[in-house]
């Protein structure tokens, strides 16, 4: 049931498709500026429009956010050369080596489960017009290393509103692409593919939870989960699922790959918590990438430093049990 156009009735307000494309707008100015130039410009619109369509933000402004940390972000080189993305191999540098082969255009996302607008949508159609912000977030890996990353994305709740969550829904689950031809890690049973993860709906609706489509104000690189990924900054990095092709709203807690693989080590919540150790790693400290050979460890913060925004979500819960 592929749809080519998102139903207007469920689009909260005007999307980017309703706005005059920037090149045309610029071109109109050129028309006004000079008569002779205007004639020459007659051939322009088509090419200019194509260029505009290539513009990944849809011509949208990228707003700054009060949720951004003022810590120094890691360099693009660091962010794109050291991460886990098991679809491309288990080594930290495997994704950087292998992810270029991934085709991200066209990209379709299936929305199903307890939603008003189920269907398979083209990415631009699904997320176009949702307000983009730069979010400079700390990222804490369960392996006790961390980075500061300037994501660009929109709040997940704006997408949830667009797809229309039915009242019975309590969780949202996500799936990563399965394409072994382009993802060498999937040719072996390192994990059970597709990679899956999910959130409780109130976690998903927290304003800190974003869907990232950009990094350093450029399109999200393949290695970091292009073209669209989840970013949940108060949880260990593996919860922030990459290269998403399915979003499912459910009443039951969705399957999460790492939790399924080893429930003793990886809980459904997987909130950053220095007081609850992973059986194999102490979570009390972390090493911020980029400090070289003599880098020192720094204390890990509760909820990765986002306690004031998210602690309420877990009021009354024993976090050593619901880890």
């Amino acid at each position: 049931m592929r749809r080519t156009h998102f139903p207007k009735a469920f689009t909260p307000d005007l999307g980017w498709a309703d706005v005059t494309p920037k090149p045309l707008f610029m071109n109109r100015r050129a028309l006004m500026a000079g008569g002779a130039a205007a004639l020459a410009a007659g051939a322009l619109p088509r090419a200019a429009l194509a260029a505009w369509e290539d513009d990944w933000t849809g011509g949208e402004e990228i707003a700054a956010s009060r949720f951004s940390t003022d810590e120094e972000p890691n360099s693009l080189d660091e962010i794109t050369n050291y991460n886990n993305f098991f679809e491309f191999g288990t080594g930290k540098e495997d994704p950087a080596r292998n992810a270029d082969a991934l085709t991200t255009e066209p990209w379709e996302i299936t929305v199903d489960g307890l939603v008003e607008n189920p269907g398979t949508y083209d990415l631009a159609e699904l997320v176009g017009g949702l307000p983009l912000e730069e979010r400079i977030y700390r990222l804490r890996c369960v392996e006790a290393w961390s980075m500061v990353i300037p994501w660009v994305g929109f709040e997940l709740r704006t997408l949830l509103d667009r797809i229309g969550v039915r009242p019975e829904a309590r969780f949202v689950g996500f799936e990563t692409l399965v394409r072994p031809e382009e993802m060498p890690g999937q040719r072996r049973g390192i994990l059970e593919w597709p990679y899956r993860d999910g959130l409780r709906l109130d976690e998903a609706r927290n304003p800190l939870t974003i869907m990232a489509t950009g990094l350093y104000r450029e399109p999200l690189p393949n290695v970091n989960g292009a073209p669209i990924r989840l970013v949940v900054p108060w949880k260990y990095g593996f919860k922030s699922i990459k290269s998403i092709v399915r979003i499912t709203l459910t009443e039951e807690q969705p399957v999460c790959t790492w939790n399924q693989q080893n429930p003793r080590e990886y809980g459904f919540y997987s909130n950053v918590n220095p007081n609850v150790d992973h059986p194999r790693w102490s979570q009390a400290t972390e090493r911020r990438i980029g400090g070289g050979l003599f880098n020192s460890r720094q204390p890990t913060q509760m909820f990765n430093g986002y306690e004031e925004y998210v602690a309420d979500l877990y009021a009354g819960m024993d976090l050593s049990e619901h880890f």
């Binding site: 080189d77 050369n81 050291y82 090493r287 990438i289």
Partner: peptide
């Protein structure tokens, strides 16, 4: 290598 950037951005773990 680790001291001169030849072991990537996380030289401690790499070494």
């Amino acid at each position: 290598l680790g001291a001169t950037g030849g072991l990537g951005v996380e030289p401690i773990a790499a070494l």
